Simulated assay, not measured.
Amino acid sequence: MDTPTHSERPFDELVREAEEADVSGWDFGWYAGRATEQRPSWGYQRLLAERLGQATAALDLQTGGGEVLAGALRLAERRPALSAATEGYPPNVLKATELLHPLGTAVVAAPDEPPFPFADGGFDLVTSRHPVRPYFGEIARVLAPGGMYFAQHVGPASVFELVEYFLGPLPEEVRRGRHPDDERAEAEAAGLAVADLRLERLRMEFFDIGAVVHFLRKVVWMVPGFTVEKYLPQLRALDEQIRAEGPFVAHSTRFLIEARKR
């Protein structure tokens, strides 16, 4: 007898499993066979490894569980003499410490918001993957003259097919949030010269309702205040839709930004 796919399992079982699963860190291995996301063509981790290999003092902001930075440090031809990372979510601080300390990187438990707990001009490389918000004034402050900010940001209206399924249509100013043109202007106003800016729209597929629940628990800013109880009717309807029509399709947006301190 064939093992049933996730989408063939009962709704309550899928939801219970997703509610009990760990959502700390940025390891997405839980989604194997349950959801997919197209990756940007530029390969952020590989490019990050190249820049780490050229840096003397590097800082990674909002590092999550440290998974991306750890992978890049392992790929780098050499590691910076000084390497630090910040994270504000306590469960992620623990995960990041376990991953990054053996690679010579200090993890600083610090809120995402300014001020950063570092002196002016202390780093020649500042990086971040998917920061909730990039504080360009602080980034410029902790960069040495000629230092580089290199990051992959979430772009405008990312995964909004899923967000608007639960919240309804959102106003245009919300949909435009995180637009790369706006962040370029903010970076330049802070004293950074943008050398590279690339935007891509990427396909995502959710194959069962458990993947949706886990995703909304993990990426908490997508549907603020999300709970299964609060959105139970919508979840049941979406479960029926996936079973009848196939995967729920959404699109993430990502942009690469590289900017040098003047």
Rank of each mutant, 00 (worst) to 15 (best):
M1G: 14
P4L: 04
D12Q: 14
L14I: 03
V15K: 06
R16H: 14
A18M: 05
E19D: 13
G25K: 07
W26D: 15
D27A: 07
G29T: 10
W30I: 08
Y31D: 09
Y31E: 11
G33Y: 04
A35V: 01
A35S: 14
R39L: 11
S41M: 04
R46W: 01
R51V: 03
G53L: 10
T56Y: 00
Q62N: 05
G65Y: 08
G65R: 09
G66Q: 02
E67G: 03
L69Y: 05
A70Y: 01
A70N: 09
A72M: 07
R74C: 06
E77M: 04
R79A: 11
R79M: 04
A81T: 10
L82I: 12
E87P: 03
G88F: 08
Y89D: 08
V93P: 02
L94M: 09
E98T: 13
E98L: 14
E98Y: 00
P102E: 09
V107E: 10
V107H: 09
V108H: 07
P111N: 02
P115E: 12
P117T: 07
P117D: 11
F118S: 10
D120K: 09
H130R: 14
H130F: 14
P131G: 11
R133A: 13
L143A: 07
A144C: 08
P145Q: 01
P145N: 02
M148W: 02
F150V: 05
Q152I: 01
H153R: 08
G155C: 12
A157W: 02
F160N: 14
L162S: 06
V163W: 01
P171Q: 13
R175T: 04
R176Y: 00
R176P: 01
P180E: 02
P180C: 03
D181V: 05
D182M: 02
A185K: 07
G191K: 02
R201V: 14
L202N: 10
E205C: 04
E205W: 00
F207L: 15
I209Q: 09
I209C: 04
G210E: 09
V212H: 06
F215Y: 15
R217W: 01
V223T: 05
P224R: 06
T227H: 07
K230L: 13
P233N: 01
L235C: 12
G246R: 05
P247G: 06
F248H: 10
V249S: 05
F255H: 15
